[in-house]
Simulated scan of single mutants.
Amino acid sequence: MPRRTLVSLGSVNADFQVRVDAPAGSQETLLAHQFRRFAGGKAGNAAFLGARFGHRSLLLGRVGDDALAEQALAPLRDAGVEVAVESVPGRSTGVSMITVPPDAKKHIVLATNANDDWAVPGIEAMAGVFDGITGPACLVVNYEVPAIVVRRAVQMACRQGWSVVLDPSFPDRVERDLLPSLTAIVPNVAEAEALVGFAVASLDDAARAALALQSEGVSIACVKLSDGGCVLAGDAGLWHLPGGHLKPVDTTGAGDGFTGAMAIALLEGRPPLEAAAWGVATAQHAVTAYGSQAAYPDRARVEASAGELLDRAVPLERPAC
């Protein structure tokens, strides 16, 4: 059987993370502790999971020509990710500055830096990498790189018959005419609100948002909820996967873990509801430890938790307009 490939395209960052004893903005200066440096970025996090789950995992992106590039990339290489990331002369690597308050709900300030520095030769080089991939593949991509890069990647992936999973961060960059080319779109609540134009304050709202996105042509629309669960709209109908009861330590990277695990499950040919259960299971385990990649569970834990989650899945009625 040909080896399956997860192709992860998007942001690659160096994360700087601290815990604080009060919410961001509650006072001018917050006293911090437990300072840590991690590898991060949406594409880096998804690629880490691809390798951790036993697939060929290929990372495409940009870093700067600075010391932070190794902070962002070394843990990925160590995990077995194939790093096809270009260093951009004169630019800084993307940086996420993360504070984690007592309720574990992180606050992030992101400097995209080199992530947004793509030129035509780099896009053409990406096309060459895509052409060299044989066997089943899935592209997982986000908009923390320029929209033209996402467009070209999605077009190439579709030509090769791959599945495509989009994390729509940043939602204002999303080009709506690409939605029919996607296998799945996986916004969080804030991103869903930006995309559909109405508040997502309840389960019915999340269902309406998922259906609205699906109506634009995407096969699977999955709204990630703040409790770690999700609402899924797909060919098998409308479903709610409830969040878990694990006490969160740090929510950093949980959404990225959801996206990566769902993409991996789809790559393996699993049904959409099972794929979403993989996403929920990964996100739930990710919040129980500090950091993102370092907190991600292994395949065995995800498979076991996903099975339990499927038993709790609830079919939903279509909400009234």
Rank of each mutant, 00 (worst) to 15 (best):
M1N: 12
M1D: 14
P2M: 14
L9E: 02
V12C: 10
V12R: 00
F16L: 15
Q17E: 15
V20C: 09
D21W: 02
G25A: 05
Q27Y: 03
T29P: 00
L30D: 10
H33W: 13
Q34V: 11
R36S: 12
G40P: 03
K42W: 01
L49H: 03
G50I: 05
H55V: 04
L58F: 01
G61Q: 05
D65H: 07
Q71D: 13
P89F: 10
S92F: 04
G94P: 11
I98K: 04
V100R: 04
P101R: 05
P101A: 06
P102D: 08
T112H: 07
V120Y: 07
V120T: 15
P121N: 09
I123T: 09
A125L: 05
M126C: 10
M126S: 06
G128A: 11
I133M: 07
T134S: 14
P136H: 07
P136M: 10
V140Q: 13
V141I: 15
M156K: 13
M156I: 15
M156H: 11
D167I: 05
T183R: 04
E193Y: 07
L195S: 05
F198N: 12
D205A: 13
A207T: 08
L211K: 08
S215I: 03
G217C: 07
V218K: 01
A221I: 11
A221P: 08
V223W: 03
G229S: 09
L232Y: 03
D235P: 11
W239M: 04
H240G: 09
P242D: 11
V249R: 13
G253H: 08
A254W: 01
P272Q: 09
A283K: 01
V287G: 02
A289R: 14
Q293C: 15
Q293G: 12
A295H: 08
D298K: 11
D298T: 14
A300N: 10
A300L: 10
A306C: 10
